[in-house]
């Protein structure tokens, strides 16, 4: 098996705060790995290291057999949709076309780029709203547009940063299907707090809290409690299940 991502004794610190301490792990081809762990545990740092946006203090990182910087063009990155200026006047298709920027020298995008962008939108089920302004899309649609943009990069590895953080999943059931369809076609690494996503999409979970630990899926309640050091997350998860008619974990009849 080829390693898609390889961390060897990687350490990183912001100022005096150590975010990652001697971390080693590998991600295999076509694996779907959920990166979980408490806030401030180093999850985002790990994504930035894989993308080559920041450098490790020590250790070695290999992505797609080369340095993160060289691998960048073959990675599809999906940031959180909340960080964008929703008033910015671009259409869904404009945003997806940004995934083809590396092929554009000047002027207009080629017909091929347009075709790939439209195909990417269709793959996340949004072909009908390609001309809609970003401002008029729902949270889930925005996030799917960003996934389509990453798909338009024709990536070998997909990185997603908390893709469900700003979405009401009961409304956006289709979103989970989109995530699942990604898993079937490429290697996926996703940072998430969402236990539903972990159980539906992940092959295994990597808990990051300065150090890393791999967990098999489904996570045991004890593991969840240990990771999030509290029962709040479990209770939240039970409530979500309760609303959708699944009463596992509820103490009523």
């Amino acid at each position: 098996m080829t390693d898609i991502v390889r961390f060897e004794n990687v350490s990183h610190r912001y100022g005096k705060t150590k975010t990652l301490d001697e971390v080693s792990f590998t991600v295999e081809k076509d694996e779907s790995l959920c990166i979980i762990g408490p806030n401030g545990g180093g999850k985002s740092t790990m994504l930035k290291l894989i993308l080559g946006l920041i450098e490790p203090k020590s250790g070695k990182i290999e992505v797609l057999g080369t340095t993160p910087e060289n691998a960048r063009s073959r990675i599809g990155y999906v940031p959180q949709s909340i960080q964008f200026d929703t008033l910015f006047p671009v259409s869904a298709l404009d945003i997806v076309l940004m995934g083809r920027l590396h092929l554009l020298r000047f002027g207009r995008f080629s017909k091929k780029c347009h075709a790939i962008a439209e195909d990417s939108l269709a793959r996340v089920g949004l072909e009908s709203i390609s001309k809609s302004p970003f401002a008029e899309l729902s949270g889930g649609q925005r996030q799917r547009v960003l996934i389509a943009r990453a798909l338009a990069c024709e990536p070998e590895l997909m990185l997603l940063d908390e893709p469900t953080a700003n979405i009401d999943l009961s409304v956006e059931a289709q979103f989970m299907d989109t995530l699942k369809s990604l898993r079937d076609i490429m290697t996926v690494l996703l940072v998430t707090h969402d236990l539903d996503v972990i159980s539906e999409v992940g092959d295994s979970a990597l808990c990051v809290n300065r150090r890393v630990h791999r967990h098999s899926i489904p996570l045991s309640p004890a593991t969840v409690q240990e990771i999030y050091s509290g029962s709040l997350r479990l209770e939240h998860d039970r409530k979500v299940r309760h609303q959708t008619g699944d009463h596992t974990g509820c103490d009523h009849d």
Binding site: L51, L53, R72, Y77, F84, D85, I95, M98, L101, C153
Partner: peptide, 11 residues
């Protein structure tokens, strides 16, 4: 629109 993503696309 997205400075970081553009950088990742080699811009």
């Amino acid at each position: 629109f997205d400075e970081e993503f553009s950088r990742l696309r080699g811009i």
